[in-house]
Structures are given as C-alpha cells and as structure tokens.
Design a protein around this nucleic acid. Structure first.
Length: 951
DNA sequence: ACCGCCGGGTGCC
DNA sequence: ACCGCCGGGTGCC
C-alpha cells in the first residue's frame, strides 16, 4: 500500500537485473578478490559481457514513431520531453502493446500497433532498451510523434535491425547529438543527415579516469553557503566543534528549505524539470534532507543528534524544561524477556496495551530483569547516572504506572503530524548510537528513545509513534518488511528517517534497500563516509531514498545522469557535480575551516618491531614453507596456480600463522579435491577450505551482496557466498547456473554449509595442549611490561587476524596480572557493548588491554581510550590496518597514538609488507597509471605469489 | 480527426 | 451497380 507507483522503474530494474546476474558479478568479483589483495586474480576477464547491460550498451540508432490513443489517458507531456516506453503484455486487445508514460509515470498513450509488434519482440527479448522523446506535437489531441533511441549490446544490433526491417522500419543511424534530449539539434526534425559511424557517442572513460573525476566531485563541496555555523540547541549537552556547527546549520537549512529541488524551474505557474523537460502544476517536493558524507570520525552522529534536538518541530528546538527531581520518575522499560536494548531513557508514556502485554505485573520478575540489566550496565559503567537511575526505577511497582505516579510526557501538544525520527544503522554501530545519545543529550531533557531491536520489540504503532527517536538496524528493517512489504515501520509516517552508513543501501536489489526506499518520511538523511564507493551506480539508491524527483525512477537517473556521464557526454559531469553539491555536505579529515584543520588529531606513529624466530620455530616454519613451495612450484609447472588459489592461500596462511605461534597452524591440509574423492572426503575438504577462507583474515564478504557473509556456503569450485545469495543466483540462472566468480557449474545440492561453530571446543582442545609461548608473544609481553612500568594507566589494543592467537595471548596476560577485555567479530551484541564500555572506562581497575580481532566492529567502533596499538600480524590489505588504527586515532583521542607492528624477519610477513607498500603507492599514485592488460594483471598476481613464498 | 477508414445509401444528364 | 461516388459514423492498444 505504501509502495508508490513506478511500474516502469521496476520493469527497468528487472530487465537490467535478469540475465544480469553474471554481469553484476563481474563488478563485485573485483571487491571479492581485493579482499585477498590479489585483485582480478580470480580471472574476471574470463567472464564475457561483464558489465551491466546498460553500461556496455551502444546506440543502435533512432526511429520516429507515433503515440496514439492520447484521448484515453491523462498523462501529458511537453515538446522535447522524455517518455518511458513500457511493455504491456496483458493488454486485452494486443499482446504486443507498448505503453508510453511521461516522467511522472502517467500514461500518455500507446505505440501504434504496427510498430509495437517489433518493439514488443525487441523489448521482451531484451535485445535493446528503447527510450523515447516527444519532439513536438505534445499538445496534439489524438496522436503525437515519438523519437525512439535503441540501446543495446553490439551483438544484438543486427537482430534488432532485422526485426524492424521485417516490419518495414529502418533505424536512422546514430548521430552525435541524436540520443540526448538536451536541446539537441534533432529536436527540430529528423536526426541530421549525418551518417557517421555507429557505436559509441564518445570514448568511454576508463575506470581510473572516472574515479578521479568522482574524487573531484567532492573537492569543492566545502565552499559556498555551507560555511554558515549554528549553535546546537540547549538540549544538546556537548559543545559542537566549528565544522559540526556548520553541519548543523546546513542540515537545519535543508530541513526547513522551501527551495525548489535542483533541475526544477517555475515557469508560468508550472514546474519544469530541465533534465527531462517534464512539467507539472504540482510543486515538486523539496528534498528536506540530504547526504552528510563527512569522513569517519568527524562526528556525523553528533551532528544528527544536534539536528534532531535543534530542529525538533516547526523549525524550533526541543524545549528544555527544567523539572524538579522529586517530580521526576525515571522509568526504564523492558520489552519482554530477553531484550536488553529495549529501554527508554527517562520518560515516556505507555499505552495501556503495552503495559498489559509487555510488562508482567510481577515485582519479583521485574526485579530479576532489572538485576540482569544492572549487572550488564551499571557495574561496567557506574558513572552512567542516567542509566543507573533508570534501572533503579525498575523497582517501582508496575501498578504505580497506572495510578498515574508516572506522568506521561506532555510535549508539543500543538504538534501535528509525525514526531518520530527513525534511525537505521548496521548492528555494529547500534550501541554507538545509544552511547552517543547518553553522551550528548542533556540529562534533564525529556526524550523518548526506543531501540527497535530484539525478538520482543514492540510493534504497537501507537506506542512507536509516541517516541521521539527509534533506533533500529537494516536487518530488522529488511526482515520486518519481508516479502509482503509491510511492517509497522512501513505503516507509520516518520518525521525523519536517518540511514547511518547509508552506502548499505547501494545495491538496489537488496531487500534492505527496497525496505529503506519504501519508508515514508518528511525529512530524509543519509550518513556515510563513502558516498561513491564503487561507482556512479551506487548513487542511485541514495538519490531514490532522498526522493529527489525524477531520480526515484531509475530510468530517469540513468538517462539523464548515469549514462551521459559514463559516455563522457559534454556537461554531464557538471550536472552530476551540481547535483551532488546540492544535496551533500562532505568534509575530510584534512578539510580546513578558516585555515585550521577540521580536526586536530594527536600524532600517529607507526613502528615496525622485527621479531626473530627461535631455532625451533624456524625449523617448523621452514619445513612447512618447503612443503608449500614444492606444491606451488608444481602448480606453476602445471600452469594451474590460478585453479589452486585456495590452496596457495592456504600455504601462505599457514606460514603467517607460524610467524605468530606454532599452535595456530591446525594441520588442516586442504589438499585439492580429486575426482576419486568420496562425497564425504570432498565435503570435508570443502569445509576446510571454507574455514580457511573465513579465518584467513580477509574480508568476509559475499561477492554477490557485498556484505558480510550470512550463512556461508562453499561451492564445489571452492568459492564462498551467502547461502541465500547464491541460491538466488542458481534459481534465476536455471537450469545452467554458473559460479559468479569462475563460471563453473553450480547446483544447489552441491553447496556445502559451514558446520556450526566449533571454535569453543577447538579452543578448549588448545587448552588441553600445554601452553607455550612464541617469539612474537615474548616480544609483545616484553613491550607491554615495559610500557606498564612507564605508565600503568595507558591502554592498548592488541590486534590480530587470528582469534585463536588472541586466545593464546590471554594466558601470559593473566600471568602478568594485566586486566584485559576482548572483542571478536562473532561476539553477541550485548557482549560487545560490555567489552567496549568497560575498556573505554577510565577508572582504575578497568581493563588496560583489549584483544581485538582485526575485522571486529566495523566503522563506528570507538576505542579512543587506547593510545597504543600492537598489530600482531600484517593484513593483506593496508586499508584494513588503517581502519583498525582509526578506531583509536579519531575524534576524542587526546594522546599521541603509537602503533607497533610485529614482523617476523625473513618470513612471509616481510614479503607481505612489500606488497602492502606497493598497494599503498598504487592507491596514492596518480590515477593516470595506465590500465593493465589482462595478462599483465595475471602476471602481477603470479609475481605476488612468487614473492610471497620466495619462489 | 481540417484526417483515414468503414460500410450503407445510392446511381444519366 | 460484382462498380464509383457521396457523406455520416467513427476513431488506441
């Protein structure tokens, strides 16, 4: 019921997706392989027709046709307006019917049936995408002309031409300006007499060129009117830094803006869209929001909190109403039995239903629950007054609530419309938001915050709509939305929706994207540190979320911006830049305000501490290395290195593990799968390979959804995906599904799942083994003890990609009397929060060390209590290391940060450093670096392997 | 639609 | 006239 009408958009979407599974995988496979730092290693060049259909499309030519039946429809167009052609296969009168819609999606008419016949064939078989522009005659009563452009893959061109010829039509060959609607020459008549060579209208830019152009897009965003500053409302408990005041001023002005959106003009009481030439009487909705694309650590969360409080209602701030403490009953509310995060800070009024169904009127029960909360929060954060009070208030008998001793909040009684801000974030930053609310909202402010998370979350619309802020995750949003597309979150209208880490919705086919796009809100914000992560394509869902007309429909985005930019069309990039500038605020860590850096972070120094293995360790290392080297040499001789990628990776992994500790190397020799293997043997080998990949410290990302692996499964060709993702691919490519990464045959029944975590038992197994130290552990302990002598209060992060290594480190830490905590990627949310909070606590007796797995947490993680980092083993990807360092070297860090990398001499680790160095240079260097050919790329990868194991 | 097309009415000059 | 011509009815797919 909420989904707005955009049939043509979805049609379009499907048409580019179907048969596009393979095409899609190309561009994702780069990400996938980059997780190993061996880009393009996985032979993406073997995949034919790799880019999205729409990207590799060329213009076949143009054709003038007629739109008929105008009498019967309400949709109107202007001269030179773009129109959408949409198949209507269920038309009662003609199976070949092709509808013509205006930019708004209103039907204008039909394509005349003689032309509709070949068009239907072309469109149904996806031989070409057909786009229309009405050159003149827009005001005709019965029929009007339409200039059609046919875009498709080169190999389909002849089929299209033949089909049209069969029906007596002939395409005019493309001429330079014929395909765009921007005041071009053909408008006045037929495409010019030019018979220039068909094909690309312009030379396509290389990825590097485009990327550097994208970077430029953001370069000048800081100037113009975005330097205005605004103080936060009284309710904001934290003083804002200058750049945060700018963000606030900009966000408030965006929310209260009355300006027409970009590319719209008012003309004779009509509103014209200058890109599509669409016009309508109704004023296009002003986009009350935008993209806050500041670098990580500049305080996007704080800016958003400040916005919520400062532009609370009617352009006015949330009033701070001083209340006497004896009148103040602080109530925490626990929804159901297990959810800990379902609490409300201070006040809110419960609806009778909520009271009766979620809170059992049983004092001992309530006490028990509150004690659980208390042990989980209060003990770790005794200074958190607010929460402590909240917990104490639990001891109020629930009957008090109905006798009225808990006042319901009276706030903004005059308020009309929705009052609630819905914030959606990845689970990993949920707790960060809760922390920041506590930190930045003045304690005497009435604000209802509800964390919509956990199995017992309230789905009562009356209750939810009474909240000021609701916090939830993309996963909850998507799973609530489900297949039926309705959920309480989608039934309610929100004052404001904020998407944190907004690039999460870059994939238009992902469920969470669809769920986010269908939320109804007055004001819409996207917070992200990486606005264009992979390509221009990623921008569409963001713009669609912002409801920026006409880009909510992908066809118009594609025709007016994406394709013109990709084809390097004159002015297209400027158009894109204007667009981004209009809705985005971006500052980087190096941005300056009035000559001063936006953030003055303490220094960050990186030291490399070389470690020499003991003779014993070196012996083991050498034997494993020789063995692996022999195997890899064999692959080289056979020319099968690339086919044995997982095995090569395995050899390298074992060597890396041996550099850390001999016990890490669990002899799961993943010998390659042989034909003679029994199903059990094969299965076991695949499971081992999968574990290898999952534990190798590389990004655990699925190449299909680009997100972290959800129910990882391994294919017979040894590639790992989310089970739902790969099943969908198999489904849609039936009966001959192929692996998106290597094009080997795929079958659902061949997918092997990861057996349930046995890490606990394996750790215990390790525990049975007698603990021994290692050279690296010795080096670490030496450094830690030294450091403690100098300053016992200093806090350290100990980072490794191997969680078992972190477990091994626990033993000497305990022996030497260090208080430590631990954070793994796999930890339950509540445990994580606990670990982070106790570590960030500055009290004496709090942990001074955190054992951190390299990938744990994600972007939002704030560990500024630490000023020392010990990186136990180098990562493939230097960016992953940097991101990890940024968790303590960020806003809030007061001390210089010293990072120590332990590197074993004469080992694979040193070689990894060399590769890292190359990568850094490549990343920093000019994008002008020429694109490597396929064979050059392969050679590079082979060289990397060789240098890794000294071949 | 100030068209095309259809089909009924009509029929020397 | 098994035609031509006239003029009314009619009109997307």
């Amino acid at each position: 019921m909420l989904s707005f009408c955009r049939d043509s958009a979805w049609k379009y979407l499907q048409s580019t997706h179907l048969g596009g599974d393979r095409t899609y995988s190309h561009y994702t496979s780069r990400d996938f392989s980059s997780q190993f730092g061996l880009e393009d290693f996985l032979c993406t060049d073997d995949i034919p027709g790799t880019d999205e259909d729409t990207d590799s499309a060329v213009l076949f030519g143009t054709l003038r046709g007629n739109v008929v039946g105008l009498r019967y429809y309400t949709g109107v167009v202007n001269n030179n307006e773009m129109v959408a052609l949409q198949r209507e296969p269920n038309n009662l009168y003609d199976k070949n019917a092709v509808k013509v819609n205006n930019v708004n999606g209103n039907q204008v008419g039909h394509i005349k049936k003689e032309l509709a016949a070949p068009l239907a064939y072309i469109m149904d078989n996806k031989l070409a995408i057909v786009e229309g522009v009405v050159p003149y005659g827009a005001k005709n009563a019965f029929t009007m002309p339409v200039q059609m452009s046919f875009w498709g893959k080169e190999e389909n061109k002849q089929t299209v031409l033949d089909k049209l010829k069969m029906h007596g039509f002939k395409l005019a060959p493309p001429s330079k300006s014929s395909e765009f609607g921007f005041g071009s020459s053909w408008v006045s008549g037929r495409a010019g007499p030019s018979y220039s060579a068909p094909g690309h209208a312009a030379v396509q830019m290389t990825t590097e060129q485009l990327k550097s152009e994208f970077d430029k897009l953001f370069e000048d965003l800081k100037e113009d009117d975005k330097t205005h500053e605004m103080e936060g409302a009284e309710a904001v408990g934290t003083p804002l830094l200058p750049h945060q005041k700018q963000a606030l001023a900009w966000m408030v002005s965006r929310e209260n803006s009355k300006e027409l959106p970009l590319f719209w003009e008012e003309k004779n009481s009509f509103y014209y869209n200058t890109l599509t030439n669409f016009a309508e009487k109704e004023r296009p909705e002003t986009v009350l929001g935008g993209i806050l694309a500041d670098d990580m650590g500049l305080g996007k969360t704080l800016a958003t909190i400040a916005l919520i409080l400062t532009n609370f209602h009617d352009g006015k701030p949330l009033p701070v109403e001083k209340i006497k403490s004896d009148q103040l009953h602080k109530v925490a509310w626990l929804s159901g039995k297990k959810t800990i995060f379902s609490f409300s800070l201070l006040f809110f009024s419960l609806s009778p239903e909520e009271t009766s169904c979620n809170v059992e009127p049983n004092i001992s029960n309530v006490k028990k629950k509150s004690e659980t909360i208390q042990s989980q929060y209060s003990s770790s954060r005794p200074k958190s007054k607010k929460l402590e009070d909240a917990v104490h208030s639990w001891f109020l008998h629930p009957s008090d609530w109905s006798t009225g001793s808990v006042q319901s909040v009276k706030k903004n009684d005059s308020e009309e419309g929705p009052r609630t801000t819905l914030i959606i974030c990845p689970l990993s930053v949920l707790s960060n938001w809760i922390d920041q609310f506590e930190q930045h909202i003045r304690p005497d402010v009435h604000l209802n915050i509800y964390v919509y998370y956990g199995p017992d979350r309230s789905k009562d619309p009356a209750f939810l709509s009474k909240q000021d802020i609701i916090l939830t995750t993309y996963n909850i949003l998507a799973s609530d939305y489900g297949s039926r597309g309705d959920s309480v979150l989608h039934r309610l209208k929100w004052l404001r929706v904020v998407l944190d880490e907004g690039h999460t919705i870059r994939n238009p086919n992902a469920q969470q994207t669809k769920a986010a796009l269908n939320l109804e809100a007055q004001r819409r914000w996207i917070l992200t540190g990486t606005p264009i992560q992979n390509s221009l394509k990623d921008l569409w869902s963001l713009l669609s979320f912002l409801k920026l007309k006409p880009f909510t429909d992908r066809e118009w985005w594609h025709r007016t911006i994406q394709r013109p930019v990709m084809l390097g069309e004159q002015g297209a990039l400027r158009r894109l830049q204007a667009l981004i500038k209009n809705i985005t605020l971006r500052r980087t860590k190096t941005s300056k305000i009035k000559g001063k850096p936006v953030l003055e972070l303490p220094e960050r120094k990186i030291f490399i501490q070389h470690v020499t293995l003991t003779e014993e360790e070196r012996k083991i290392y050498q034997s494993v290395k020789n063995e692996g080297k022999a195997a890899i040499s064999r692959y080289f001789n056979e020319g099968t290195v690339l086919a044995h990628y997982a095995d090569v990776l395995g050899v390298v992994l074992r060597l890396r593990q041996l550099c850390c500790h001999p016990h890490l190397c669990t002899n799961t020799s993943s010998s390659s799968c042989q034909i003679g293997d029994t199903p059990e043997e094969l299965r076991e080998k695949l499971v081992n390979k999968m574990k290898l990949i999952l534990s190798s410290g590389s990004d655990e990302e699925c190449a299909i959804c680009l997100d972290s692996l959800n129910l990882p499964v391994i294919t017979h060709c040894a590639h790992v995906f989310c089970k739902p993702c790969i099943c969908e691919v198999i489904q849609s490519e039936q009966p001959n599904a192929k692996c998106p990464l290597c094009r080997n045959e795929l079958r659902v029944e061949h997918l092997v799942e990861c057996p349930p975590e046995e890490s606990d038992s394996s750790i215990e197994k390790k525990g049975d083994r007698e603990w021994i130290s290692s050279s690296k552990i010795n080096a670490l302990m030496h450094a830690l003890i030294d450091l403690r002598k100098q300053n016992p209060a200093v806090k350290c992060l100990i980072v490794s990609q191997f969680t078992t290594f972190l477990s091994l480190i626990e033993t000497p830490l305990k022996e030497s009397g260090f208080v430590f905590t631990r954070l793994n990627g796999s930890m339950a949310q509540k445990k994580r929060v606990q670990a982070i909070q106790s570590f960030q606590d500055s009290q004496t007796g709090s942990p001074t060390i955190m054992l951190l797995s390299l990938k744990a947490g994600g972007v939002g993680l704030n560990l500024t209590a630490a000023s020392r980092v010990f990186l136990m083993d180098p990562a493939w990807n230097p960016a992953a290391e940097d991101q990890c360092f940024d968790r303590c070297h960020r806003l809030g860090q007061k001390q210089d940060v010293v990072i120590t990398k332990f590197i074993v001499k004469n080992s694979v680790e040193e070689n990894m450093l060399k590769i890292q160095k190359k990568k850094r240079e490549l990343a920093a260097g000019a994008f002008a670096a020429k694109k490597l050919t396929v064979s050059e790329v392969k050679q590079t990868k082979i060289n990397e392997i060789k240098s890794l194991i000294d071949l």
